[in-house]
Simulated scan of single mutants.
Amino acid sequence: MNISARSLPFLLLLGVAAQAQAQDPNACPQLPVDSGLAWQHQNAGDSEFCRALRADGSEAFGMVIGRDSPFDPDRSNREETGRIDGREVQWYRAEIALKPGVQARETLVRLADGRVAHIWLQARSDDALVEAFGQAEALRFGARRDTQVVAGQ
Protein backbone atom coordinates (compact mmCIF):
# COMPACT_ATOMS: atom_id res chain seq x y z
CA MET A 1 0.00 0.00 0.00
CA ASN A 2 1.41 3.39 -0.99
CA ILE A 3 0.18 5.76 1.73
CA SER A 4 1.72 8.80 0.09
CA ALA A 5 -0.60 8.48 -2.90
CA ARG A 6 -3.70 8.90 -0.73
CA SER A 7 -2.52 10.97 2.21
CA LEU A 8 0.00 13.29 0.57
CA PRO A 9 -2.53 15.55 -1.23
CA PHE A 10 -4.45 16.02 2.04
CA LEU A 11 -1.26 16.76 3.96
CA LEU A 12 0.03 19.15 1.28
CA LEU A 13 -3.27 21.00 1.32
CA LEU A 14 -2.98 21.41 5.06
CA GLY A 15 0.62 22.58 4.67
CA VAL A 16 -0.35 25.20 2.08
CA ALA A 17 -3.17 26.38 4.30
CA ALA A 18 -0.71 26.78 7.19
CA GLN A 19 0.62 30.20 6.23
CA ALA A 20 1.31 31.11 9.85
CA GLN A 21 2.21 29.00 12.82
CA ALA A 22 -0.41 29.02 15.53
CA GLN A 23 0.33 27.79 19.01
CA ASP A 24 -2.71 26.28 20.71
CA PRO A 25 -1.57 24.24 23.72
CA ASN A 26 -4.89 22.37 23.85
CA ALA A 27 -4.98 21.35 20.20
CA CYS A 28 -1.90 19.10 20.12
CA PRO A 29 -0.81 16.58 22.75
CA GLN A 30 1.89 17.42 25.28
CA LEU A 31 5.42 16.88 23.97
CA PRO A 32 8.11 15.31 26.15
CA VAL A 33 9.67 18.15 28.17
CA ASP A 34 13.28 17.28 27.28
CA SER A 35 12.63 16.46 23.60
CA GLY A 36 13.76 19.78 22.14
CA LEU A 37 10.63 19.71 19.95
CA ALA A 38 8.01 22.38 19.37
CA TRP A 39 4.57 22.11 17.80
CA GLN A 40 3.58 23.75 14.56
CA HIS A 41 -0.21 23.73 14.67
CA GLN A 42 -2.85 24.50 12.08
CA ASN A 43 -6.59 24.21 12.53
CA ALA A 44 -8.14 22.70 9.39
CA GLY A 45 -11.91 22.86 9.87
CA ASP A 46 -12.84 20.18 12.37
CA SER A 47 -9.31 18.68 12.30
CA GLU A 48 -6.04 19.70 13.91
CA PHE A 49 -2.77 19.38 11.99
CA CYS A 50 0.24 19.09 14.34
CA ARG A 51 3.89 18.82 13.35
CA ALA A 52 6.58 18.23 15.98
CA LEU A 53 9.56 20.24 14.75
CA ARG A 54 13.20 19.99 15.76
CA ALA A 55 15.24 23.15 16.44
CA ASP A 56 16.50 23.06 12.82
CA GLY A 57 12.89 23.11 11.52
CA SER A 58 12.82 19.48 10.36
CA GLU A 59 9.82 17.32 11.23
CA ALA A 60 10.31 14.65 13.90
CA PHE A 61 6.75 13.38 13.43
CA GLY A 62 3.32 14.68 12.67
CA MET A 63 -0.34 13.98 13.14
CA VAL A 64 -3.84 14.89 12.11
CA ILE A 65 -6.47 14.76 14.85
CA GLY A 66 -10.06 14.67 13.66
CA ARG A 67 -13.30 12.76 13.41
CA ASP A 68 -11.94 10.46 10.71
CA SER A 69 -8.61 9.64 9.08
CA PRO A 70 -7.72 8.94 5.45
CA PHE A 71 -5.24 6.34 6.73
CA ASP A 72 -6.61 2.80 6.43
CA PRO A 73 -4.05 0.38 7.93
CA ASP A 74 -3.20 -2.77 5.98
CA ARG A 75 -2.51 -5.67 8.34
CA SER A 76 0.22 -6.94 6.00
CA ASN A 77 2.18 -3.72 6.70
CA ARG A 78 2.36 -4.26 10.47
CA GLU A 79 5.79 -3.62 11.90
CA GLU A 80 6.55 -2.55 15.47
CA THR A 81 4.31 -2.32 18.49
CA GLY A 82 4.69 0.46 21.02
CA ARG A 83 2.86 2.58 23.58
CA ILE A 84 1.45 6.09 23.26
CA ASP A 85 0.15 7.74 26.39
CA GLY A 86 0.16 4.40 28.19
CA ARG A 87 -1.76 2.48 25.51
CA GLU A 88 -0.42 -0.17 23.15
CA VAL A 89 -0.26 0.86 19.50
CA GLN A 90 0.58 -0.93 16.28
CA TRP A 91 2.94 0.86 13.89
CA TYR A 92 2.47 0.21 10.17
CA ARG A 93 5.14 0.45 7.48
CA ALA A 94 4.51 3.10 4.82
CA GLU A 95 6.28 3.62 1.53
CA ILE A 96 7.10 7.08 0.30
CA ALA A 97 7.73 6.99 -3.43
CA LEU A 98 9.72 10.23 -3.49
CA LYS A 99 11.96 9.24 -0.56
CA PRO A 100 13.56 5.84 -1.23
CA GLY A 101 15.51 4.56 1.75
CA VAL A 102 13.45 6.52 4.26
CA GLN A 103 11.71 4.39 6.86
CA ALA A 104 8.17 5.58 7.46
CA ARG A 105 5.64 4.42 10.05
CA GLU A 106 2.02 5.33 10.84
CA THR A 107 -0.46 4.49 13.54
CA LEU A 108 -3.99 5.41 14.60
CA VAL A 109 -5.14 6.18 18.13
CA ARG A 110 -8.78 6.78 19.13
CA LEU A 111 -9.04 9.56 21.70
CA ALA A 112 -11.48 9.60 24.61
CA ASP A 113 -13.49 12.41 22.98
CA GLY A 114 -14.19 10.20 19.93
CA ARG A 115 -11.65 11.76 17.58
CA VAL A 116 -8.83 9.83 15.91
CA ALA A 117 -5.14 10.76 15.90
CA HIS A 118 -3.29 9.62 12.77
CA ILE A 119 0.40 9.79 13.68
CA TRP A 120 3.27 9.35 11.23
CA LEU A 121 7.04 9.51 11.37
CA GLN A 122 9.97 9.22 8.97
CA ALA A 123 13.60 8.30 9.59
CA ARG A 124 16.73 7.88 7.47
CA SER A 125 18.37 5.31 9.79
CA ASP A 126 17.51 2.67 12.36
CA ASP A 127 18.83 4.95 15.15
CA ALA A 128 16.70 7.85 13.91
CA LEU A 129 13.66 5.55 13.78
CA VAL A 130 14.19 4.47 17.40
CA GLU A 131 14.54 8.14 18.45
CA ALA A 132 11.34 9.10 16.58
CA PHE A 133 9.43 6.21 18.20
CA GLY A 134 10.60 7.35 21.63
CA GLN A 135 9.48 10.93 21.03
CA ALA A 136 6.10 10.00 19.55
CA GLU A 137 5.44 7.39 22.21
CA ALA A 138 6.15 9.92 25.00
CA LEU A 139 3.20 12.08 23.90
CA ARG A 140 0.53 12.89 26.47
CA PHE A 141 -2.95 13.84 25.32
CA GLY A 142 -3.75 15.75 28.56
CA ALA A 143 -7.52 15.99 29.00
CA ARG A 144 -7.80 13.44 26.21
CA ARG A 145 -5.42 11.13 28.09
CA ASP A 146 -7.76 8.12 28.07
CA THR A 147 -6.86 6.74 24.64
CA GLN A 148 -7.32 3.46 22.90
CA VAL A 149 -5.93 1.94 19.72
CA VAL A 150 -8.10 1.65 16.62
CA ALA A 151 -7.94 0.08 13.18
CA GLY A 152 -6.48 -3.26 12.32
CA GLN A 153 -5.71 -4.49 15.81
Rank of each mutant, 00 (worst) to 15 (best):
S47I: 01
L8R: 02
Q42K: 15
S4M: 01
V64T: 10
R110K: 14
V109G: 00
R105I: 00
E131F: 07
G101L: 10
F49V: 09
S125H: 08
Q90E: 13
D127M: 05
C50W: 09
V149Y: 11
L12H: 07
M1D: 07
A117F: 04
D113V: 05
D74Q: 13
F141C: 06
Q21F: 10
T81I: 06
A52H: 05
P29R: 07
R144D: 14
R115L: 02
Q103H: 10
A138E: 03
A143L: 14
E48A: 13
I96Q: 11
A44Y: 14
L13V: 08
I3W: 08
L108H: 02
Q122S: 11
G62I: 05
P73T: 06
S58A: 13
Q40E: 10
R110M: 10
A143R: 15
H118A: 12
V64L: 03
A17I: 06
A151L: 03
R124G: 14
E137T: 02
D34E: 13
A22N: 14
H41Q: 12
A38D: 10
L11F: 13
A22T: 15
R140E: 09
F133A: 03
A143N: 08
Q30R: 15
G114S: 13
Q148S: 14
A22Y: 05
G36M: 11
G36V: 09
G82N: 06
I65T: 03
V130P: 01
T107I: 03
T147I: 14
N43W: 00
Q42R: 14
S76K: 08
F141T: 03
A20R: 15
C50I: 07
W120E: 02
L53R: 15
A18Y: 00
F10R: 08
R87T: 12
